[in-house]
Structures are given as C-alpha cells and as structure tokens.
C-alpha cells in the first residue's frame, strides 16, 4: 500500500467561498441537490449527502453588543465560522465494515471508496456512518460519497476540492505530515490567543481509529454538525453477536420446552390452564406449567442476561 493520504481542513482560514463544493460536483459530475432557500446563514445545501460530497457550513455566533450611545444592547454577530466538511475516510470505517457486497473498499491510499458497479443499494452503510456522510441517492438507488478523488490520485493529481481551495483551508497530503502540520498550526493559533482552536479527528485513539480527513475547529464539533465522540459501532460487533446468539439459543430452548413440557396433555387437547385459569388460580395444568422447566429456564434466562451483561462490560 502506498502512503496513506488524507485531508487536513483548517477551518480557521476557510472563507466560505464554496469553491470546494462546486469543484467536487464539477469533477465528479454530481447532480444538484435541489434549489431551496434554507435561511440558515449562507448554507443552502444543508449537509453532506449522496450528491454533496463537500459541504460548507456557516455558523453565525452572536453576542450582545452595545450600539454606540444607544441604551439598548444589541445582539450582534461576533464571528462567522465556516467549515468545509467531507467524508472522514476513517481508519475503522463503519460503512466499509458493514457493506455486505464489498462495494466499499480501502484503496492503496488508505481511503474508503464505493465501487458504484458493485453497490446494490442495500443502504446499510448509510446509518452505519457515525458522521452521517454516505447516503443513498433517490432514483439512482446506490450509495455515494467522497472518493478522495481516487481517480485523480491515481493520475497523480490532488483532489479537486483541495486544488480549488484558494486559501489552503483544505490541505491534501500524506496523513502523517498533515498531522504534524496541524499540530504546529494549532499551537500557533493558541499562542496567538485563539484558545478555542482544537483538532478534531486527528487522534488514532478515537472511536474510528483516527480520521483520514481531520479538521482544525474553533468551537465544539457539534456546532459544525459533527459528532463530538463518534464511534465505529462495528467495534461492538462481537458483543452484539454474543447477545444475538444467546437470544437464538433462548428461542431454540423455549420452543423445545414448549413442545417437550407441554407433552401429552397438550396432545390430548387440554388447554394450558386446565380451563380454570380465567376463573381464579391456576388450574393443575397451569400450576404445572408455572413450575415447569420451561418456565424456570425462561426465567433463569431472563435473569441470566443480567449476568451476561456484567460479563461483557
């Protein structure tokens, strides 16, 4: 595998020009996302999706400001954050993990790419992504997302969005180098008094094993629409299967017991409660059921979950 390539998006220098959004659509020939005025600052595309692989967020933050010689304090804009979001190309990519067809794969550049000729549109990757990146396109039926311009990289070109970015807010390169550069940048910003500057997604010890596209943010990630502590849920998959296995066993056991214990009485057509259940107190058969192994097993099983639970913690 070639060197792992990635993005460092430094939102502190993003001017919100959306050149990245347009360049991505242009290069990848994506359809438009509809023409809806959202009244959410200058953002009318909302979020990443099947047809928007770069998305620029606009966050207006206000604080009370005194208009000169005016007694009424005015809420006025303090800062306008802009940030270009993209697929994170996770080290542990939930989308890739859960894809049943192998349409999603990891490239030689360490990126995560959908092969559109293999995707069958099962849609599983969509809710699996902890960042809400990949989506199924209506009408087309397949899942789409940023490829980190796999085709351009193969041709030795940098991704279209990074190429178009006038201020180098989007930096493309070997991930290790980018991480170093980002550390320096954040240190410099902090030294200049921007205490709020922080990196997001750069740590290999986070819930996705580190993002291949990470960010320098000036506020909490959720302000930008990013999850504060994303996790690739496949991390819990063994536990999930254990629980499902226990449930499957319970099904088998419960069904078996329903047959074995019910035995001849049921065969002869007597009802479980011996006809007296409804009129007060369990009938002999009913009482027998409540004491039966099936019932006790079931109860034990239900109780056992608590034990199991403790065990898998």
């Amino acid at each position: 595998m070639a060197e792992r390539m990635g993005f460092f998006t430094d939102t502190s220098v993003c001017i919100g020009c959306k050149a990245c959004e347009v360049a991505c659509k242009e290069w990848n020939q994506l359809p438009d996302d509809g023409f809806v005025f959202e009244a959410t600052s200058y953002d009318n595309t909302g979020m990443l999706g099947a047809s928007t692989w770069r998305h620029v967020a606009f966050i207006e933050q206000s604080r009370p400001v005194q208009v000169p010689s005016d007694p009424e304090a005015e809420d006025s804009v303090d800062r306008w954050l802009m940030s270009s979001d993209v697929c994170k190309h996770c080290t542990h990519a939930a989308c890739l993990d859960v894809c049943p067809t192998g349409a999603l794969f990891r490239t030689e550049f360490g990126t995560v790419v959908v092969q559109s000729d293999i995707c069958n549109g099962c849609g599983y990757c969509v809710p699996a992504c902890p960042y809400g990146v990949i989506d199924r396109r209506e009408g087309d039926g397949r899942a789409w997302k940023c490829t980190m311009c796999y085709d351009r990289q193969l041709g030795g070109l940098e991704p279209a969005c990074a190429k178009a970015c006038p201020t180098d807010s989007i930096q493309f390169g070997p991930l290790d180098e980018l991480r170093e550069r980002a550390e320096e940048r954040v240190a410099r910003l902090r030294a200049d008094g921007h205490e709020e500057a922080r990196l997001y997604g750069e740590s290999p010890s986070d819930g996705v094993g580190g993002a291949g596209a990470f960010f320098l943010l000036l506020d909490e990630p959720e302000v930008y629409g990013l999850p504060p502590d994303p996790v690739a849920t496949t991390r819990d998959l063994p536990a999930m299967w254990r629980w499902a296995g226990a449930a499957a066993l319970s099904v088998a056991g419960a069904v078996a017991l329903a047959f074995l214990n019910g035995g001849p009485g049921l065969k002869s057509g007597t009802s479980l409660n011996g006809g007296t259940f409804l009129t007060g107190g369990a009938g002999p058969k009913g009482r027998a059921f409540l004491k039966s192994r099936a019932f006790l097993k079931g109860r034990a099983l239900l109780k056992g979950r608590a034990l199991l639970k403790g065990g898998t913690r």
Partner: peptide, 26 residues
Amino acid sequence: TATYTAVLIADTAVPAWHEAYRELPF
C-alpha cells in the same frame, strides 16, 4: 434468522438501536 436482524440494526450509528444492542435480540 429470528435474531440476526437485531444485530443488523444495532450495528449502526443510530443511537436508539446501537445502545440497545443487548436487549434488541431478545
């Protein structure tokens, strides 16, 4: 067949599903 579907939906970022991965199979 009766229980894998619980894993299917629990293995997603959907909070109400993933957080319930223990109980959903039952």
